[in-house]
Design a protein around this nucleic acid. Sequence first.
DNA 1: TAATCTATTAACAATTAGGTAACGCATTCG
DNA 2: CGAATGCGTTACCTAATTGTTAATAGATTA
Lengths: 229, 229
Amino acid sequence: MKKKDIKILLVDDEQDILEIVGYNLSQEGYQIVTASNGKEAIAKAKKEHPQLIIMDVMMPEMDGMEACENIRKIPELQDTIITFLTARSEDYSQVAGFDAGADDYIAKPIKPKVLVSKVQALLRRLKGVEGVSSTTTLTVGNIEINREEYKIIKDGEEIILPRKEFELFYLLATKPGKVFTREEILDKVWGNEVVVGGRTIDVHIRKLREKIGDSFFKTIKGVGYKIEF
Amino acid sequence: MKKKDIKILLVDDEQDILEIVGYNLSQEGYQIVTASNGKEAIAKAKKEHPQLIIMDVMMPEMDGMEACENIRKIPELQDTIITFLTARSEDYSQVAGFDAGADDYIAKPIKPKVLVSKVQALLRRLKGVEGVSSTTTLTVGNIEINREEYKIIKDGEEIILPRKEFELFYLLATKPGKVFTREEILDKVWGNEVVVGGRTIDVHIRKLREKIGDSFFKTIKGVGYKIEF
DNA sequence: TAATCTATTAACAATTAGGTAACGCATTCG
DNA sequence: CGAATGCGTTACCTAATTGTTAATAGATTA
């Protein structure tokens, strides 16, 4: 995907900001769409399918937070990156926007240069922009792991794994032989704060054993799990 | 190595984050160095030789990914742990940056408590911090002890040990020849608070003798045990 | 909207690790 | 020479840990 194919939706109630930011970004070659409140933002997002949305938190009609929540519910816009513009004074850890589904935020006052480079950094995540390469497959033993499509190929046979199962397998596969403690697994696969019941890991391991092969997975009692090839 | 000798490099373009995170970590006794973009990060990393780098992925000038790749190429910084701050909770396998050589990631929004405990966990990997050793393998005689995989290899033969047995053996193996008193063993393997009966150690020693070989274990009557090769 | 899939939990079974008691043997020491 | 002490050994018990299955709520897809 090239720069000129990337669409950015700017949302702010102040015309000045739309102009300045819009100008700078379009200079860089991005396509710019604007909206001046939350409702309009949702409408335009649906219609235009932007890759990135930069939105002020405080706006009349519908604020950024609410709009963000709504946009996150739209299936086609799952991969859209949403960034808030927030007042500097807010305590970072208090920024509620993350709960609403935002990916990042940019603090005001906005410096054009900073903004532009930040936008570029954000867009690096998008597949194929400026040929950003990332190894999408990992091979262990006779198994090839394709993390873009959440599937693995074992002896030429394709096995599609659900998200969590895949994540778990992928984690173990990054260091074959290494024993991952339950704690470690929870932390990396389930995330920092999520608390799930004690048997959850076992069940997922079992499913992997069924699908991939029992023999690969070793249980080290009192410690955790590992895979071996 | 003590806490106050540990240097952490924080990299983020937002001053707020540097302050909050920096404050929390310095409260814990760590030395903090900061940088606000990738280029600066590389420069400071070279100069300061931090043990841990916590870096935002998205930054102007040079983003975290690129900086990480560059830092990884610096010989003196091979052992430095690099952790990314990533937007929201991306799936583990999707967290770009592992390709770039990152060791771990922390998801935004950052909660100080979570951060601090995560940092502590990461630093346990470093040799000598709070007596936790980082060496993953230890070789004594014809036996290789692999802490990461919870197994020992004797003459090419793999022996998997239960947790307590492994820890007991590992303890003795850290100083071959040294006599460990029962008190010492209980303290290190079983922990300060647990009270177990008098014969417990014997039984475990016996199990090790069975699995690994009687001849390695010497009993010093009235004192304790040691291993010899 | 109905029809799948997924992730998680709950409940129970199976397994194993850790610990203990009991007994026997050796060494030490009076 | 016994008695006392410390250690080795076995068998057994219990608690902790994991395996397994099924049920359910939530997502996702057709």
